[in-house]
């Protein structure tokens, strides 16, 4: 199979996955008894309820609702928030970027530390350094994000007073729009702890996987030849051993994106981060199903997209892959 037809096939699969995801979303929020929509309308008076139901199109047969739901999504119409009486799109778009930036920072940090650390763990196999490193890594992975967050808050905020307790910008700081929001020291100052919290939780998997994969690669004949070639040891380590060991991490990275996006609900709650995750928790608590659904929809979309990108990246990075 050629690369093109491989990509086309993957795109086909992604479309199927995406459609299934949208359907699950519809079922969860509209069909199952006790779904958020019914909960939303049951709080209203009898007349208001009728009205609201008609307004949301809920008096239509399910398949009509389903088709309408897909049509709306296709038009990037996420509906009206039931609580804020505002377009969900307007509410969520900024929160979406707030979350993406935070999680990207976490993941980049986690992977940088994980790959470097995992490689060193393998390189220094059998030493006290390796032992200590493994214990620390497992410790980091054993601590739920909310707990790591609370510990960091306790130490760096309540005790040392080094960082703000939460939020994304200081009160009274200049309100920037667009990308400007993320280009100030004030933002970095607020983002350090939440990003670190995520990084600590996420770094365990890449570090341990990297170590295992490195141990395999270090036993390979070609590493010995590269040493025999008289290349600098750091070249052997990074250009050859690390480069080969990284391959299995690519697939895992997509899964990590999924974990990070899902984990945003926790981190954003602990640090009061105005992102999609916290919006989703609040929306569920307020029975604002349109908003909750939109958050869920965006999270899933990012994960599906990243899985697809990771697949292509893998094929690109490993010349041996046959497209099957």
């Amino acid at each position: 199979m050629s690369f093109q037809s491989y990509v086309i096939r993957r795109i086909g699969q992604v479309i199927v996955t995406y459609w299934a995801f949208l359907t699950i979303l519809f079922v969860l929020f509209r069909v199952v008894p006790g779904d958020p929509v019914s909960m939303h309308v049951q709080d209203l008076g009898a007349e208001a309820r009728e009205e609201r139901i008609a307004e949301l199109g809920l008096d239509q047969p399910l398949y009509v609702q389903y088709v309408e739901y897909l049509r709306q999504l296709a038009r990037a119409d996420l509906g009206q928030s039931m609580i804020y009486n505002e377009s969900v799109w307007n509410i969520i778009v900024v929160k979406f970027w707030n979350t993406i930036i935070l999680m990207a920072a976490s993941l980049i940090l986690a992977y940088a530390i994980g790959i470097l650390g995992g490689a060193l763990l393998a390189w220094y196999r059998g030493t006290a350094f390796e032992k200590g490193g493994i214990v620390l890594t497992l410790l980091a992975r054993s601590s739920p994000e909310f707990w790591t967050g609370i510990v960091l808050l306790g130490v760096f905020v309540f005790w040392l007073g080094l960082f703000p307790v939460g939020g994304m910008r200081s009160i009274g700081s200049e309100l920037a729009t667009g990308v400007g929001r993320y280009l100030s020291w004030d933002f970095v100052y607020h983002a350090v702890l939440p990003a670190l919290t995520g990084a600590i939780y996420f770094l365990g998997t890449p570090a341990l996987l990297m170590r295992n994969s490195m141990l395999d690669v270090l036993n390979a004949d070609f590493i010995e030849i590269k040493k025999a070639e008289g290349l600098h040891p750091w070249n052997v380590l990074y250009k050859h051993a690390v480069r080969n060991s990284i391959l299995p991490l690519v697939t895992i990275a997509a899964i990590a994106v999924g974990m990070a996006i899902g984990g945003s609900v926790v981190i954003e709650t602990v640090f009061n981060w105005p992102g999609m995750g916290r919006a989703m928790v609040d929306a569920v608590n307020n029975n604002d199903y349109q908003l909750a659904m939109a958050a869920f929809f965006l999270m899933g979309s990012v994960v599906i997209l990243m899985n697809f990108v990771a697949d292509l990246l893998y094929v690109y990075l490993d010349p041996r892959v046959t497209y099957e």
């Binding site: 390979a220 004949d221 070609f222 030849i225 480069r243 080969n244 990075l317 041996r320």
Partner: peptide
């Protein structure tokens, strides 16, 4: 080396 195929870095 004995097995040249494994003597080259595959990537």
């Amino acid at each position: 080396p004995q097995n040249a195929m494994n003597g080259f870095d595959p990537v």
